[in-house]
Design a protein around this nucleic acid. Sequence first.
RNA 1: GGAGAGAUGGCUGAGUGGUCGAAAGCGCUCCCCUGCUAAGGGAGUAAGGGUUAAAAGCCCUUCGAGGGUUCGAAUCCCUCUCUCUCCGCCA
Length: 427
Amino acid sequence: MIDPKLLRQAAAEVAANLARRGFAFDADAYLALEERRKSLQVETEQLQSERNTNAKRIGKAKAQGEDIEPLLAAVKDLGEKLEASEAALQAVQTELRDLELGLPNLLDDAVPTGDSEEDNTEVRVWGEPAKPGFEARDHIELGERLGQLDFESASKISGARFVVMKGALARLQRALIQFMLDTHTSEHGYTETYVPYLVKSPALVGTGQLPKFEEDQFKTTDESPFYLIPTAEVPVTNLASDVIFEADSLPVRYVAHTPCFRSEAGSHGQDTRGMIRQHQFEKVELVQFVAPDASMDALEELTGHAEVILQKLNLPYRVVVLCSGDIGFGSTKTYDIEVWLPGQGRYREISSCSNYNDFQARRMKARRRNPETGKPELIHTLNGSGVAAGRALIAVMENYQQEDGSIRVPEVLQPYMGGIEVIAAPA
RNA sequence: GGAGAGAUGGCUGAGUGGUCGAAAGCGCUCCCCUGCUAAGGGAGUAAGGGUUAAAAGCCCUUCGAGGGUUCGAAUCCCUCUCUCUCCGCCA
């Protein structure tokens, strides 16, 4: 949520910023609504104040045994007026809040203006795409030849956009997850967390998926109000909701491995084959709670933490800054890390690292005590994949494939693989 | 799933219709006293919002959440959520 004070005081500037996203913010309509809120609130509070003083007066008079009838007569129609005023105020406030919850975050100046992922800017490249002396297979062919990726069974059980993994490949994904968790906890100062995979709607409002992106979420049933998490960002970031952190307790860094569930509404026809875009996938997520002046530095760090994973796996990648047309709803600045996939001959997103500044914090009332003033103030939140495990598996398969279709196990994963160095089809 | 109890400020905990945003204690902050340590005395100490250029001041809201009764609700009524205890079931 954008600071309502800023919306009031600088509506035109906000509109200009959001226009870079292609988002139309009607500043005049907002300000008109805000005017109504103001007059209604002043009026309501005046009536409330009147009610309070009268009630006190009656209480006193009664205690002294005076006749309260005339006092009661005097406040006779106050109640009705107050009720009407309160109802009108609440209606306007609900309208305002709905509007505010629907506004995306303000963009950082460093975000390039653009329409689509075509306009993202590359900031650095690491490693060099390998040129094998044979034609690289994609992960689908590799996995099916090994008999360890089974899309047919998955679709029989659950339909499209699911996979069944078996044997060493299933273990390889688990190894990747373990390796990532261990690296982030022991080398980057994150605390491992285990969190619920089912959450209630306020949690999703807090991180920004609701109310606007309801159709992207899986909901359990209409009766029970649970949603399946689309990312660990949701439960982990909400650990800060309604919390006032002590001045010296930030930054807080959490890492969690969870499955992620996405309806992928609106992405029909995209990446329908293979494991790139699934309804269910595994991800290791990094979340940070930081002081408000520390978030841009933290974003660089956090992105670096994700990069370390790819470096240790020796997977070539590049980092891009998302442009104004591609960046997420709640982010003020996002780096995507794209890993090289030989089977596709291109870079594909494997991590997305975002600074939300106070956007989520305001929604979920995540605050800290300012060390100077002692007063609560909103913190900044960040998150990033560190990294997506399903896509990391694909990347390892395609980058470590050999001509005979076998897959070498990256050195850093071997301790997690019980000595397996090559994954090959049984002879 | 059955039976019962509960939800109050950073914590413990009092408060069953009026001057209660809330006693007391603990904790924390500041001051005073005391030549160590310990102890003692005093003051302060919730959050959000409105008004304001901003602050002060003033006002409003909040005692799990939402609704209701009333001139007036932490206190009475209804619904919901959560927590705890016992029984049953269960990885």
